[in-house]
Simulated scan of single mutants.
Amino acid sequence: MPEHRPGRALTADAPERTAVPTTARRLRLSRLLAEMIPGAHTLRVTLRGPARTWPSPHASAYDDCGRRLPLNPPQARTAARWIIRACPEADWRQEYDLDLRTGRLLRVTEARNAAVGGR
């Protein structure tokens, strides 16, 4: 019988993990979301779902022309959770748009200014 040693169990050394750059992570997430929501160009993410008084992750999908695409509640909640977890550096008290083609995450006010002409 092996000798008992107090303390932590012996484990194999974990291989070195390389950090995935945030942009690569967002781009990969964008591709997954684009597959999950066909025809979507942009996802608007907020912690305030419609008709909710408490924080509730919510996403809305928009096509190339800015028309809203229908999402069922599980899709909206799942997409929002994935984006929020992939972008912890964002201030989630505000709304953000995720461009599914480039993986860029912009505050809604910045996205509107960029669309108007960069004011």
Rank of each mutant, 00 (worst) to 15 (best):
M1S: 15
M1D: 03
P2S: 11
R5N: 04
P6Y: 10
P6H: 13
A9R: 11
L10P: 02
L10C: 05
T11L: 11
T11A: 13
A12L: 15
D13I: 13
A14D: 08
A14K: 15
R17C: 06
R17A: 12
R17W: 08
T18L: 15
A19D: 12
P21T: 11
T22P: 02
T22Q: 14
A24T: 14
R25H: 07
R26F: 05
R26P: 00
L27N: 01
L27C: 01
R28Q: 15
L29N: 04
L29A: 06
L29V: 10
S30V: 06
R31F: 09
L33E: 02
A34Q: 10
E35P: 00
M36D: 14
M36F: 10
I37W: 02
I37S: 05
P38M: 13
P38R: 08
G39C: 03
G39W: 08
G39P: 03
G39D: 10
A40V: 12
A40G: 01
A40P: 01
A40T: 01
H41G: 03
H41S: 14
T42P: 00
L43H: 03
L43A: 09
R44Y: 02
V45T: 09
P50D: 13
P50H: 12
P50M: 08
P50K: 09
P50C: 12
A51P: 01
R52M: 02
T53K: 09
W54G: 02
P55Y: 14
P55S: 14
P55F: 04
S56K: 08
P57N: 14
P57L: 10
P57T: 15
H58D: 00
A59I: 10
A59F: 06
Y62Q: 11
Y62F: 15
D63G: 08
D64R: 14
G66D: 01
G66R: 05
R67I: 11
R68P: 00
L69S: 04
L69W: 04
P70D: 09
P70G: 06
L71S: 05
L71G: 02
N72C: 07
P73A: 10
P74S: 15
R77A: 13
T78Q: 09
T78D: 06
A79L: 07
A79Y: 00
A80C: 01
R81Y: 02
R81W: 04
W82H: 04
I84M: 11
R85M: 02
R85V: 03
E89S: 04
A90Q: 13
A90I: 02
A90P: 00
A90N: 07
A90L: 12
D91V: 10
Q94D: 09
Q94V: 06
E95M: 00
E95V: 13
E95L: 05
E95K: 00
D97Q: 08
L98Y: 08
D99S: 11
D99N: 13
D99M: 04
R101Q: 15
R101Y: 12
R101V: 12
G103E: 04
G103Q: 05
G103C: 09
R104N: 05
R104C: 05
R104W: 04
L105I: 07
L105R: 03
L105H: 00
L106S: 11
R107M: 11
V108A: 01
V108Q: 03
E110A: 15
E110P: 00
A111Y: 01
R112Q: 12
N113C: 06
A115I: 05
A115R: 15
G117S: 14
G118T: 03
G118H: 07
